[in-house]
Amino acid sequence: MALAAPLPADEGAAGVADAERLPVDRVALARLYGEPLFRMPTDLYIPPDALEVFLEAFEGPLDLLLYLIRKQNFNILDIPLADVTRQYLAYVDQIRNHNLELASEYLLMAAMLIEIKSRMLLPPKKTDDGSEGPDPRAELVRRLLEYEQMKLAAARLDQLPVLGRDFLRAQVHIEQALAPRFPDVHVADLQAAWMDIVQRARLNQHHRISREQLSVREHMTIVLRTLSGRRFVEFHELFDTTRGTPVLVVTFIAMLELAREHLLEITQAEAFAPIYVRLAYRPA
């Protein structure tokens, strides 16, 4: 809104005098070039069409024609041209009074509607084979159907999510270096981490006991094979100390069984003297 129209000299002087007499705490209606304005100008010019509002805006002659047909539920394949043309011309007369350039785009379609209506009033022309010619409205119907399809397709596309309107693109900056950067770790930190792992391993140790299958008969055979071909063998030589306590016990039991069956002899000359073992003598 432009409020810079010059005031007459008398009114301007009176306005300045009135403004000087106004109280300081009065709220200004507006500011004009930084100066407070406490009353509306009396010579403010408002164009006649500044407050006019068009409730219906169309994108072209076909859009207006399709709107008139769909609004009244007319069959698009059988358009009542008299009613549609009358309503179309009424709209054209309305916009021609305000915007002649815009109305010129609609006048061509109005002329086309009048031409089609006049052709329908005349007797139909016969073709060479004697049949009636095409309907004068056929070309208009084709254009309306194609326009409606394009309009519906545009409406469906408009409902799709649009970047900047319905969603925003997320942008993340990731710094990528040519050489990998490894963390700086001191030797003391590695030692502390290793000691912590060892301590946890000690807390989670498991002792599994397995049962070894040992045969007394097998060790009896081993003892007899060791004594075979030898006159005497010291008692301790029959025991394999590298195989553990269970093997020693089974070997001792095997020797006792052989002695009970009189297959070997265990002798000692005196107390604390070496103990010898030999095969039992059997006469031939």
Rank of each mutant, 00 (worst) to 15 (best):
M1I: 03
A4H: 03
A4W: 00
A5L: 06
P6T: 05
G15A: 15
G15N: 15
A19M: 14
P23V: 06
P23R: 13
P23D: 14
A30W: 04
L32V: 14
Y33G: 14
Y33H: 13
P36I: 08
F38R: 15
R39N: 01
M40Y: 02
M40L: 14
D43C: 03
P47Y: 02
P48L: 12
L51P: 00
G60L: 05
L62Y: 04
L64Y: 05
L66M: 06
K71N: 07
N75Y: 02
L77Y: 05
P80D: 03
L81A: 00
R86S: 08
Y88K: 06
Q94H: 01
I95T: 03
I95H: 01
H98K: 10
N99S: 07
N99D: 12
E101H: 04
Y106R: 07
L108Y: 07
M109G: 06
M112S: 09
K117I: 00
K117R: 12
S118N: 11
D129I: 01
E132F: 03
G133C: 00
P134F: 00
Y147I: 07
M150D: 15
A154F: 05
D158V: 07
Q159R: 15
Q159V: 11
Q159G: 12
L163G: 13
G164A: 10
I174A: 15
A179G: 04
F182A: 13
V185D: 06
H186A: 11
Q191W: 03
W194G: 12
M195C: 00
I197M: 14
L203D: 14
N204L: 12
N204Q: 12
Q205F: 02
S210F: 09
E212R: 10
H219S: 10
T221S: 15
T221E: 13
L224P: 04
R225Y: 04
S228R: 13
S228Y: 04
V233P: 04
E234G: 05
F235Q: 14
R243A: 12
V249A: 12
A254I: 07
A254C: 07
L256G: 04
E257S: 05
E257Y: 00
R260F: 01
E261P: 00
I266W: 01
A269E: 13
A271K: 04
I275C: 06
I275A: 04
Y276S: 08
